[in-house]
Simulated assay, not measured.
Amino acid sequence: MAPSRAILRCTRFVQLRSTPRLLSTACTTRSQHAPLAKRSSASSRSRLSHHPATVTRPYSQNATPLEPPDHLSEGELHVFRKIKAELDPVKLEVQDISGGCGSMYALEIESAKFNGLTVIKQHKLVNSILADEIKSWHGVQLRTRPT
């Protein structure tokens, strides 16, 4: 249900109550509220039975394997291939931000291997993969996200 419709339902229920309560406490669970649960239980069961618990959307899946862009320099391409081989990312962007000398890179990585890891552990994982390259760099900007 869209958030706007959920708010409308909750506000209708709050208006029917005799004692005033905060909107967030009145809308926490539907099972506590008989009029709302009775009215929507049959329709929600029929709607939920048609949809599986996990919905996969073909337009949000990465259908093609991740390929490096044509504009990458040799250093960027080396970093791209090394991260791609180790992390199998969904999204990977590598950019030399040192003006072309290869001493500083900006990396943006989105991978399933980051699931369940804190940001610090994600960065440590990337740093361990690129340990030899980072030794010769001046700095690195790193943005990581789990899928």
Rank of each mutant, 00 (worst) to 15 (best):
P3L: 03
S4V: 04
R5A: 08
A6D: 09
A6F: 13
I7E: 14
I7N: 10
R9D: 14
R12Y: 13
Q15N: 11
L16N: 15
L16M: 13
R17T: 07
P20E: 00
P20N: 14
L22D: 15
L23K: 01
A26W: 04
C27I: 13
R30L: 15
S31Y: 00
H33V: 07
H33A: 13
A34C: 04
S44N: 10
R45P: 05
L48F: 07
P52H: 10
A53E: 13
T54S: 15
T56F: 04
P58S: 06
Y59I: 07
S60G: 08
N62F: 00
L66D: 10
L66N: 09
L66W: 06
E67L: 13
D70Y: 05
D70Q: 12
H71Y: 00
H71L: 00
L72M: 11
S73V: 09
E74W: 07
L77K: 01
L77E: 03
L77G: 02
V79H: 03
F80G: 02
R81G: 14
K82S: 12
I83R: 00
E86S: 12
E86M: 15
E86R: 11
L87Y: 01
K91M: 09
L92K: 00
V94T: 03
D96R: 01
D96T: 01
G100A: 05
G100P: 09
S103I: 12
M104I: 00
Y105R: 11
Y105F: 00
I109K: 03
I109W: 03
I109F: 03
E110T: 15
E110N: 00
A112D: 08
A112E: 04
K113E: 05
N115P: 02
N115H: 14
G116E: 07
L117V: 03
T118C: 07
V119D: 03
V119S: 02
V119F: 10
I120Y: 08
Q122N: 05
Q122I: 00
K124C: 09
L125Q: 06
N127T: 09
L130M: 02
A131E: 11
A131Y: 01
D132G: 04
I134C: 08
S136T: 15
G139V: 03
V140K: 12
L142G: 03
P146G: 15
P146K: 06
